[in-house]
Nucleic acid binder design. Structure first.
Lengths: 212, 212
DNA sequence: CCCGAATGTTGACACCAGCAACATTCTAGC
DNA sequence: GCTAGAATGTTGCTGGTGTCAACATTCGGG
């Protein structure tokens, strides 16, 4: 048989974080349980308290990890873009893509985010993810594809748009039966945002679809 | 003293709903507790089960009540509008206003909305609230202020925008220190959405503000 | 009037977060 | 190398929760 499991785990903090991410992805942040995380990590129900002050802090760590993944998803999606404005739109697609692939993780990041203020050591990753968006906006402004108005305001507007799409899509409030349909809608919405709802060409709509 | 409280409450279901709304508004849907609702209603911890199958269903009822209030908030905010497009924008303000005034209730409506699918008898109010938005879009299209493209797509785009603003504002992820500042940003974003980010006049930005 | 249905209560179970006390292991200073 | 204290992990407990089962009370139609 294998040796009888050392008393000290060695890398319990990382193991707990990994287990927590797995548990969140499976049951969501609502049913998320500190004790289940401990079980997954093959450790007693109180061991996590040696590494995280409480459940909130572990959730905050999970959220921080999520923001890093989110930033990577945005960057990867924007990679093949042809110009700066296109990159901004594609990063929005990456945002929605992340939300659809890990909806529970996404929820932990935005619906349970008081922990990010209570334990500020985890807040940086969120700011960095936002900075990715700001960078795309700035690039589009430098390229003359966006006006030279307040960069923050532009970025926050774009963020609100894709965040709303992501949240509604996760809640199944959009009449889209597939991820591909959500991406189509995202493309429509981002084009509408950059060109203006009032300026859409009559052929620019989406296919007809039922209400949620 | 008063009579010794009749064994049968009489209107316990409504009383429980009212108490639940109060409890949610105070502690949020996370710390929301069936037993606390029962205490508020001066009733044993198991009485709610005679009127709601489980905690989920009570939450769904609370959410349904919230959608009715949300619809009223949108309609009230759009009342003083000068034209159809303005009414659409103002209803967005009403949406955000509701979210800021009852953030916990808003969260119950959108973050805990599986119950609305599990117990579909509460889903109608949500559809009705969305219909309010669709009506404003339709009116703007009839007035020639919005193009004759897919009405649903336009409405869903506008919804995503204001929903994202509301969620981010509640999560204190917008750099706005007051509700008034959030409303200013909402006005900016809705104008940006109707006219297009690329068409904003250089003076059209917001005042400079720090990152979250 | 009476019996069943509706409504409310008591008690129990399994689970959870977090505290305290204890056990084991690692490590720094001598 | 040894030892004391820090770091890490465990067991056991308390108070709280959702939900089930069994029981009590009241209401309403025959």
């Amino acid at each position: 048989m294998s040796e009888p499991a050392p008393y000290h785990h060695g890398h319990l903090k990382q193991a707990l974080l990994k287990a927590a991410v797995r548990v969140i992805g499976k049951v969501g942040p609502r049913a998320f349980t500190l004790r289940e995380v401990a079980r997954q990590a093959k450790v007693s129900h109180n061991a996590p308290y040696r590494h995280f002050r409480d459940k909130e802090e572990l959730l905050a760590a999970v959220a921080a990890e999520g923001f890093e993944r989110l930033a990577r998803s945005m960057i990867a999606a924007a990679k093949p873009a042809e110009n700066a404005l296109d990159a901004l739109a594609m990063s929005g697609r990456g945002y929605v893509q992340f939300a659809l692939r890990w909806p529970e993780h996404f929820s932990a990041m935005f619906d349970y985010c008081e922990g990010l203020r209570v334990y500020p050591e985890y807040a940086a990753s969120g700011r960095e993810a936002f900075q990715v968006l700001v960078d795309y906006v700035t690039a589009a402004q430098k390229a003359g594809q966006l006006p030279a108005v307040d960069t923050s305001a532009l970025a926050l507007t774009a963020w609100s748009m894709v965040h709303g799409i992501a949240k509604l899509a996760i809640g199944r409030l959009l009449p889209a039966e597939s991820k591909e349909a959500v991406f189509e809608f995202t493309a429509f919405a981002t084009r509408a945002l950059s060109e203006g709802l009032t300026n859409l060409s009559p052929s620019g709509g989406l296919r007809r679809s039922a209400l949620p």
